[in-house]
Design a protein around this nucleic acid. Structure first.
Lengths: 169, 169
DNA sequence: CTTGGAATGTCAACAAGGCTGACTTAAACT
DNA sequence: AGTTTAAGTCAGCCTTGTTGACATTCCAAG
């Protein structure tokens, strides 16, 4: 399994022969890049004594206003108890509003308040600024490739969720 | 290379104009992809009651055998107390060996034992398998772009560390 | 109509792994 | 000799994951 090289796939193997070393570099690139990716929002959140979990909740509530707790759970891939803790503080702090469902009263529909939307804006401005700079530096074709590889790296279920969100916009 | 258009409704021509929506999609792609990226090793580690922190330590000790604690600290971006907790269990479990430095006896040079190397192999085989599949699916040019964007997204300091590791190999 | 099961959300307690701060030890440098 | 540096330790805190127990609501079968 580790002759330092990995087998060739169907078609065009001469162009795509992936050594363990090349793959290892990709792994490290993901590690370091993800750190950069989260660094700016993390700094903002630290001042507010929130964490990355709060950011994720705010992000997806912003993208899908009125979503239920269960929806959010699936997207975020955490337990409902874990999410609930974060949600509770956001609601207590007046950033998120939780309305009892109209048809099904078991559900809660989640929305950002004005204050919540303002924080969302601040956080994503910071994150987008870095992303924009990286996109500009790398160029359009690199960006297309970037997105293709990321998509191929997702778990199938998450990939479907991602595509659903993408196409809705 | 000249038509520059590849799926995903992402036209390269629009890159001077990076809409918030396009950037948001990139942000979500990073989020979902990173989850996939860590999923396989996480499963293996859970059975051993280790966590991602142990994986990272093992990974970088493997890449730079004989590295010092201080080096590792800088690469991983955590405090020595945090790293020490992880390192202590790895040493106690016989996966990592800590040798007093030859020239500077204050330093400790870290190496994987045979058992440590075996676990490293198992973890990175899993992670590489996914990476390889994603690379194959996306194709060589996408991979080049992927790496370029990731590199541009890193903090400058981490970028230097990344390049140093890359060029050493 | 009632009742039992499924879905949804909440509360409590615990563990991993970050963090800070204070301190020790040993070696190196000046 | 005195200072600085590398490493390790102890204590305690916070965020954010986890399970388990529980309350509420809905719906469908009896």
């Amino acid at each position: 399994m580790s002759d330092g090289r990995s087998g060739a796939g169907y078609g065009g193997e001469s162009l795509l022969y992936l050594t363990d070393e090349q793959l290892r570099q990709g792994i490290e690139a993901m590690f370091f890049a993800y750190r950069g990716f989260t660094a700016d929002p993390d700094r903002i959140l630290a001042d507010l004594s929130y964490g990355r979990a709060h950011h994720r909740a705010i992000h997806f509530i912003h993208c899908a206003p009125g979503t239920t707790v269960n929806n959010l759970l699936t997207i975020l891939g955490v337990t409902k108890q874990s999410l609930n803790r974060v949600l509770r503080t956001l609601i207590a702090d007046g950033l998120v509003e939780s309305r009892v469902g109209a048809q099904d009263k078991r559900e809660r529909n989640l929305h950002l308040t004005e204050a919540g939307a303002a924080l969302e804006q601040k956080l994503s401005d910071a994150q987008r600024a870095r992303m924009r700079a990286a996109y500009r530096e790398a160029g359009p074709e690199a960006v297309a490739g970037f997105r293709q590889v990321l998509e191929a790296m997702m778990d199938p279920e998450m990939r479907r969720a991602y595509i659903r969100l993408r196409d809705k916009a």
